[in-house]
Simulated assay, not measured.
Amino acid sequence: MEARDNNVLELRGEALGVINIQSSSEELFQNKTLRPILKLQNDLFIQVFINYAIKQKGAFFELSPDKKMAYIENVIQRDIKFRNSLKGMIIAFFTLEEYAEYIQISSNLNKRMMNMLIERLKSQVQLIEK
């Protein structure tokens, strides 16, 4: 398992964001683990969202920019299956140690994960086209 963890860490790269002594454990996890994974998986998240929108009759693509932002947020918050799929794409890149830490505070970290992903997709809405 050590080889897997090393490979995962090498793929993800360095921590992103500010890390200091006052950082909470959740903030540390966010910057050391979540941000690098979200960056690594970014292109895949965009394609997964496009596929989701197409399967939902493509209504997303006809919306105004403001309504697209609301759609992204609503879908990720309300469609449990879709949210769990996205969550799995993130958790798959945890090391065993990170997973052990994650399960201790998963509720708070899940909120952070999804909020970060929502903001990431919203900031790239122009890339989400058929």
Rank of each mutant, 00 (worst) to 15 (best):
I54M: 04
Y99H: 12
M89T: 00
F82C: 04
G88C: 06
F94S: 02
S23P: 02
L34Q: 04
F29C: 02
P65W: 02
L34S: 04
Q126E: 15
L96R: 10
S64W: 03
P65A: 03
M1L: 09
I21E: 13
S106W: 08
L127T: 01
R4C: 02
S106H: 13
L127E: 13
S24W: 12
Y99A: 01
L63I: 02
I76L: 14
I80F: 05
A100H: 10
K68A: 00
Q22K: 06
K55H: 11
A15Q: 14
S25E: 14
A15K: 15
K81D: 10
I37P: 03
F82V: 04
E26I: 13
E27V: 08
G88M: 08
E129Q: 14
G17V: 08
E14H: 15
L44D: 06
Q56T: 06
L40Q: 04
N42A: 07
S23E: 04
R78V: 00
E119C: 08
K122R: 15
R120H: 14
E101D: 13
I54S: 00
I72W: 01
R83C: 05
M89N: 11
L38C: 05
E73G: 01
F93T: 02
E27F: 05
I128S: 03
R83A: 11
G17F: 13
I91P: 01
N110M: 05
R12I: 11
M113S: 07
I54E: 06
Q104R: 11
L40F: 14
S106Y: 14
I91N: 02
S123N: 15
Q30I: 05
I37D: 04
F61E: 06
F60V: 00
N6V: 15
E27S: 10
I37W: 05
N31Q: 07
M1K: 12
I103H: 05
S23Q: 03
Q77I: 01
T33L: 03
P65G: 00
A3G: 00
L117M: 14
A100Q: 13
K130H: 12
E62H: 12
K130A: 08
K111M: 07
L44P: 00
Q126Y: 14
K130L: 11
L34V: 10
V8H: 03
K81T: 08
Q30L: 10
E62G: 01
K39R: 12
Q56S: 08
F82T: 03
F61D: 08
L117I: 05
G88K: 10
A15F: 13
R78D: 14
F61M: 02
I118G: 06
F93D: 09
E14M: 13
Q56G: 01
I118N: 07
Y102K: 04
L96G: 05
I118W: 06
G88V: 11
A53D: 05
V8G: 02
F61T: 04
K130T: 09
D79R: 05
F49H: 08
L121V: 08
N31K: 07
T33E: 06
D43S: 14
K67W: 02
S24D: 11
Y52E: 07
R120Y: 11
Y52S: 00
L34T: 08
I105V: 09
K111D: 08
E62L: 12
K81V: 06
I76S: 01
V125I: 14
G13Y: 12
E10R: 11
S24I: 04
N20A: 03
K67Q: 07
F94M: 06
I80M: 01
L34P: 02
L63H: 06
E97H: 07
M114T: 12
F29G: 02
F49I: 09
N7G: 13
Q124H: 14
Y52D: 02
